[in-house]
Design a binder for these strands. Structure first.
Lengths: 250, 250
DNA sequence: TAGTTTAGTTGACGTAGATCAATTAGCTAC
DNA sequence: GTAGCTAATTGATCTACGTCAACTAAACTA
C-alpha cells in the first residue's frame, strides 16, 4: 500500500544511516530546513546536523524541563510532543511527521516545555541550537527561516486553540484528518491512504476529547461513507466533505 | 486607586508623546524589548522604534491578512488580538498589556494572522521587522531575544490549549485572573486591585466560554469571598485560593 | 493453548456548560 | 424625563460530550 509510512520502507529499516548522508541529498530537503537555503548554505547547515541511531517506539527524544540544547527534525517515523500540567494530566501538544521541526519550545527558557517520544521507529536529525544561532548571524536566510518557523508554530497553535475551544467533536476530528492528509501529500505520499501513527488516546488528548468520542466519531464518519477505518489504517473516501466539516463554524 | 491602568494617568493622557522619548528612559524598559540589550545596543534599537499617536478605543493596529511589516509594543492601555475563522466566528487569541509585544504571528507568512484592536486608549511603539532582522544580524543579543520571545509565545499558546481543552470554567477564569495579576505586578502595579480592560464577551471568547458562564463564575468567586467584582473593577481577596484553583487538574 | 494485557468499540446514563429568556443598570440622544 | 442601546446578571432548560461499563479482538507470554 502506497500510504504506509516510510519508516517501513526497506531503505530506512536496513540502513537508516544511509537514508540521508547529508541534507543536500535528503529526499525531505524540499520541505525541511534546507528549504530556505542556497546550495552553499546547505553545506554549512549540513556541518552542524547530527544524525543519530533511530529511536525505537516509546523512546524519548527529550523530556520536559531537560536542559535545552537542540532542535530536531524528523527524518522518518513519527514523534509526539506532550506536556504535564501541575496537576499531573498529560496534554499532547503536537504530532511531528517527517520534514517537521520540533523542540523549539525550549528556546524561551532554556528548558524544553514538553516531552517528545517516538510513536514508531523514527530517524531523527539533531541540530544544536547554539550552532543555529551562529549560522543565523551569518546567513540572513537562515535567521529569516527560523523566525518564520517559530511564527508559523504560533499561528498553528492559535488555530488549535480555536479548534478545541469553539468546534465540535466532528469538526475537530475532520480537521486532524485533513491536516494529516495534507502533510502526507507534501511528502508525496497518498493523501487518501493514511496510516495513523498515533493511538486513539493520543488523538483524543490532542483534540480535547475522550477516546470514546473519538471512536464514535470515526464510526459515524465511516457510516456516512466519508472514510474507512480499521484501527490505524485510514482510507479517506470524501476529502471534500471532511474539509467542509473541518471548516464549519460551531 | 493604585491599580488603575496607567493610561488614565495624567502624563499619558496629556502628553503621550513625552511619556517615552526613547527606550532607555522608558519606564517599561526593564520588561520590554530593551530588557535583553546592553546600553549601547538600546540606542540602536531606539533608532528603529516609531512612536505614533495614541490609539483610541476600538481603533485597529492591524487587521488579519494585512501585509506584515512591523511588530508592536504596548506602551500604555491594552490591546486585544483576535482572528476570524472561515466560518466567520471570532477567536480572541490574546490580550496585550504595557511592555508586551504583539504582531509576531505575521512573520511566518508575511501577513498578520490576527487583527489587533485597542480595548482602551493606548500608546503603541511600532518596530519595523526588517530593521529587527538587520539588527539581529549585528547584535546576537537581539537575535537571541527575539528567538526567545517567539518561543515563549509558543509555550504560552500551548498552555492556553491545555487550559481551554482540559480545564473547567472556574479553572480557566481563575487562571486568567492570576495571569493578569502577575502581569500587573511585573509593571509595579497592584496585583490585587485590577481594572479589567476587556469585556465579559472578550473574556468568554478568550477562555472558550459563554458570557453567561463567565458572569456566573465571577459571581461564584465573589460569593466564596475570593474576589470582589463590579463591572470591570476587580479586587482579588484571596490570590492563593485562585492560584490553587488555576492549577487544579480537571 | 490458554491466560493475560492492551487498544478499540459500543451502549446507557449523567453533567458542565450552552442556549434561551427575562431583568437590571448605565449611557446617549433629544 | 423617557426612549433606545449595550453590558452584565440571573434563572430555567437543553444537549454534546463525558463517564461508567460491558464487550471484542489483537498481541504477548508462559
Amino acid at each position: 500500500m502506497i500510504a504506509v509510512s516510510e519508516h517501513n520502507a526497506p531503505s530506512d529499516k536496513h540502513c537508516p544511516h544511509n537514508a540521508a548522508i547529508n541534507c543536500a541529498s535528503c529526499r525531505l530537503s524540499a520541505i525541511c530546513l534546507p528549504l530556505a537555503l542556497a546550495q552553499d548554505e546547505i553545506v554549512q547547515l549540513d556541518e552542524i546536523v547530527q544524525r543519530g541511531r533511530p529511536l525505537q517506539k516509546g523512546q524519548h527524544l527529550y523530556r520536559e524541563n531537560d536542559h535545552f540544547s537542540s532542535v530536531f527534525a524528523v527524518r522518518s517515523g513519527a514523534v509526539k510532543a506532550y506536556s504535564m500540567s501541575d496537576s499531573g494530566e498529560e496534554q499532547v501538544t503536537g504530532f511531528y511527521l517527517p520534514g517537521e521541526i520540533l523542540g523549539m519550545d525550549g528556546i524561551g527558557h532554556n528548558r524544553y516545555a514538553s516531552s517528545a517520544v517516538a510513536m514508531e521507529v523514527s530517524a531523527i536529525c539533531e541540530i544544536p541550537f547554539a550552532n543555529i544561532e551562529d549560522l543565523s548571524g551569518k546567513l540572513p536566510n537562515m535567521q529569516k527561516h527560523f523566525f518564520k518557523l517559530l511564527s508559523q508554530e504560533i499561528v498553528e497553535d492559535q488555530r488549535h486553540i480555536t479548534l478545541v475551544s469553539k468546534h465540535t467533536a466532528e469538526e475537530r476530528l475532520a480537521s486532524l484528518i485533513v491536516s494529516i492528509s495534507a502533510r502526507n501529500a507534501r511528502r508525496n505520499l497518498s493523501p487518501l491512504n493514511i496510516r495513523l501513527p498515533m493511538s486513539r488516546t493520543d488523538i483524543g488528548n490532542f483534540l480535547g476529547l475522550t477516546i470514546e468520542t473519538v471512536s464514535r466519531v470515526f464510526s459515524r464518519f465511516a457510516k456516512q461513507g466519508l472514510i474507512e477505518i480499521d484501527k490505524k489504517e485510514l482510507v479517506v473516501l470524501d476529502i471534500d466533505a471532511l474539509k467542509h466539516i473541518a471548516s464549519l463554524g460551531h
